[in-house]
Design a protein around this nucleic acid. Structure first.
Length: 423
RNA sequence: GUGGGCGUAGCUCAGUUGGUUAGAGCGCCAGGUUGUGGUCCUGGAGGUCGCGGGUUCGAACCCCGUCGCUCACCCCA
């Protein structure tokens, strides 16, 4: 047993019933993203470490101690992606597509940290990004896409937190004001922030310790320091969401973990999950990121949403049924030496029918058991009798007491199955 | 990085103060009148009790170490 390899710490295999749930939420997202005018983007799983250092901030928690960084044989320094946005922006800068560029993705994300419920070293995110416009309508679209998505998969108990961090000038000015205010009150902060209050000052707003909260509550507030433009932009976003009936909570303390955010930031939190891991999706504007990655100034906005966490939230709300049906329509039982099943399955599948079968020449009873467990609506039986008569017996597996079973000539079976399946 | 809990069959677990060939349920396999599932009955396969060392006449059980899993803190999806 100890010789058997296991999935690395903080990673998971997804199989069986669980994978159908994954397929469901991914397909739902892909469909919605298409409806919103997004096309799929696939970027490398690893990038030059600079993409993330410059993007999410060298001093950020993720960049300093959570990145999987490695050197390849050529001495280049790479990092497994810790998040989805920076790679998309890097790709945008590299290829310079015509804006607005709207892309969605499904990707693994890697962070070296101690795993726990709802937090893993490799998790998966569905995300969407728009580059090339600072129109508040884009902010609204992006947030409503995520909102639609969560509703579509059956999530009910979630809230949307929204904030504006201002553009560079007003945010940096605010940070200076905040620093000056804090400098005189360092002793009143929580133990952790007494040490790091001046390196990552904004993050202090997000501290949950009562000491920090009371200090920052009494201090200068970010919303009061937005310039007129940023303020107007934010008002339009809020107004637009309100007009769509999408309720948002103003969250002045919402400061997300990556340095690239400007103006609109938002987070979707599940009330069905415990506080520490209740964020099921989050994002915001990053109007300077393209420049930071060497491109021409291009505003952008997007979000990432954790698949594992969403599935946990759904489970917590009692939604465990996969969104898509992956049960087969028919199960072919063949006990003859002629292996009619192979050709029959081929024909059924070509006609768009999900057909499965048993293997290894098992007994009829054994094959029927498997057929039952597969959830298939019909069993197609081929035994010596059918073989001799050139027929196939169609048995309705849903029938319980009175068994419903009829034989048809081999040539008529496909049409009969299609008819019975209502296709 | 810090702290708590747990490692016995594929899964969920039981195993009394250390005492013979380690159990249950589910799952799996095979049967239950001559080809037919879901209920029921019978039988069967499957475990070096995470790994290593120690104490003991004797260890799944006690001690030490080690590896793994898990939960929480920090932070995030």
């Amino acid at each position: 047993m100890s010789e058997v390899f296991q999935a690395p710490v903080g990673t998971h295999d997804v199989l069986g019933d669980e994978s159908a749930r994954w397929e469901g939420v991914i397909a739902t997202f892909a469909q919605l993203a298409y409806r919103y005018g997004f096309s799929m983007i696939v970027t490398p799983t690893f990038e030059d470490v600079g993409v993330f250092n410059r993007g999410i901030g060298e001093k950020s928690e993720v960049a300093t101690k959570e990145m999987y960084v490695f050197e390849d044989r050529g001495g280049r320094s790479y990092a497994l992606r810790p998040e989805g946005t920076a790679p998309v922006v890097r790709a945008f800068v590299q290829h310079n597509p015509t804006p607005p560029f709207k892309a969605w993705y499904f990707t693994p994300a890697f962070r070296y940290e101690r795993p726990q419920k709802g937090r893993y070293r490799e998790h998966h995110q569905l995300g969407a990004e728009v580059l090339g416009s600072e129109d508040p309508a884009i902010d609204i679209e992006v947030i409503s896409l995520l909102n639609d998505y969560f509703r579509a998969v059956g999530l009910k108990r979630f809230r949307i937190l929204i904030n504006s961090m201002g553009h560079d000038e007003c945010r940096l000015a605010y940070v200076e004001t905040l620093k000056a205010y804090l400098a005189a009150r360092v002793d009143s902060l929580c133990a952790e922030h007494q040490k790091v209050w001046d390196t990552n000052t904004l993050r202090l707003l997000d501290c949950k310790k009562s000491e920090c909260i009371s200090v920052t509550d009494a201090g200068p507030q970010l919303p009061d320091h937005l310039c007129a433009d940023c303020d107007a932009h934010f008002e339009k976003v809020k107004y637009g969401l309100d007009a769509l009936g999408i309720a948002c909570e103003r969250a002045p303390r919402l400061v997300r973990g990556f340095d690239y955010y400007t103006r609109t930031t938002f987070e979707f939190v599940s009330d069905a999950l415990d506080g520490a891991q209740n964020a099921i999706g989050g994002g915001g504007r990053y109007d300077k990121l393209a420049e930071q990655l060497g491109g021409s100034p291009t505003p952008g906005i997007g979000f990432g949403s954790g698949v594992e966490r969403l599935l946990l939230a759904l489970e917590a709300e009692g939604v465990t049924k996969p969104l898509i049906d992956r049960t087969p329509s028919v199960f072919v039982v063949d006990t003859t030496e002629d292996d009619v099943a192979t050709a029959l399955c081929y024909e059924l599948r070509a006609a768009g029918i999900a057909a499965v079968r048993a293997y290894d020449n098992r007994s009829m009873k054994a094959q029927m058991k498997v057929a039952d467990k597969s959830g298939a609506r019909f069993a197609l039986l081929i035994g010596p009798q059918e073989l001799a008569a050139g027929e196939i017996t169609i048995r309705d597996l849903r029938s319980a007491e009175k068994v419903e079973q009829v034989s048809f000539p081999r040539s008529e079976v496909l049409a009969e199955v299609l008819l019975r399946l209502g296709k």
